[in-house]
Design a protein around this nucleic acid. Structure first.
Lengths: 172, 172
DNA sequence: CCGTCTATTCAGAAAATTCTGAACAACCAG
DNA sequence: CTGGTTGTTCAGAATTTTCTGAATAGACGG
């Protein structure tokens, strides 16, 4: 892959990272590893992306924690090297699972707690909050099912995507 | 609803807002409107939440743009008043639709562009990127279907949530 | 033990995001 | 037109997030 194309990919993946709740530096490192066959050391990464050793080190720690990057030892090399996990599906599941636990579940719990301590005096407001809770509960169940069985979910997604030829993304 | 409970809800909804890509002030205003039967004016909102008129005005503008808050005119009142849309499902669809368009679609396009300009020289990397693109395309189709027919999707979510009694959120 | 090489940490710097409040605009009544 | 009321905007302040680089720690060979 030529350097310009690679760096274009690195930057666009960096922007998308935000959508996954991953910051720009982390996503750029991830992209670089995805686009590189050989394991890379800290040195190569900082040089290629123009970031500090400290930042790269912390990002790699987080990326490993998310389970999307792996540290490998090269024989004859004292340094650590890193490669991207190459199954994007498993990456998606890991990230979705962790974000659900960290962000979604606590919010549902908070809403349920509020409902538990809310009286019956205001029907309109109570109904609104109950509808909200019902929706979050539905999403929760969907996520649970989806995340509980990676193989099945993967198949379902592939099936859906295969059904109709891919068209431009105007379907809103 | 008593003031403490309400403010607890306002704050927890504020935290959750981040997950939807909505900032804290916006989510707090939204929560306050959700938890209030009567339409509120700018004045009441700024006073209750302790924020500036300017910020509240901008947040309300954005909330209306997201389609989750509506401006109403009260007879005999010169000021503008605001109420929350009370269908959370439609709120979910509006937000999901807009975020897909704003964040997801451009990233997919960028990846496709990179693939289009990438040669065949590196099989491993090319295959990684193709897998990634396949996954994003699958998600794209799923989102298109889900967002294309609000009624059907709503029914599906409700069905899933009704199937099994709700248990604690430990299913990871 | 020392010197070298590398990874990690974290206080403070830099950057990005969010918020404020004063200025302005729009409207209305008198 | 004037004075009063309310909504909006936006430059800069405040806050939050991210990044840097120097300090530190660990590991290894000699």
């Amino acid at each position: 892959m030529d350097p310009d194309t690679r760096s274009e990919f690195v930057e666009s993946w960096g922007s998308m990272g935000v959508m996954w709740g991953i910051n720009r530096s982390m996503a750029r490192i991830h992209a670089l590893l995805l686009a590189t066959r050989e394991p890379l050391g800290l040195e190569e990464i900082t040089e290629e992306l123009g970031m500090s050793r400290g930042n790269a080190s912390m990002c790699l720690k987080d990326l490993r924690h998310w389970g999307v990057v792996r540290r490998v030892n090269l024989t004859g090399e004292r340094r650590d090297f890193y490669i991207a996990e190459d199954d994007p599906w498993s990456m998606l599941f890991r990230i979705a699972t962790q974000r659900k636990k960290r962000e979604f579940d606590p919010a549902v719990t908070a809403l349920q707690k509020v409902l538990a301590t809310t009286g019956e005096e205001d029907d309109l407001v109570r109904e609104r909050l109950e509808d909200l809770e019902e929706m979050l509960r539905a999403m929760d169940r969907l996520l649970q099912r989806f995340l509980a069985n990676e193989g099945a979910s993967r198949g379902m997604l592939k099936f859906l995507s295969a059904q109709v030829p891919y068209r431009s993304k105007k379907g809103e």
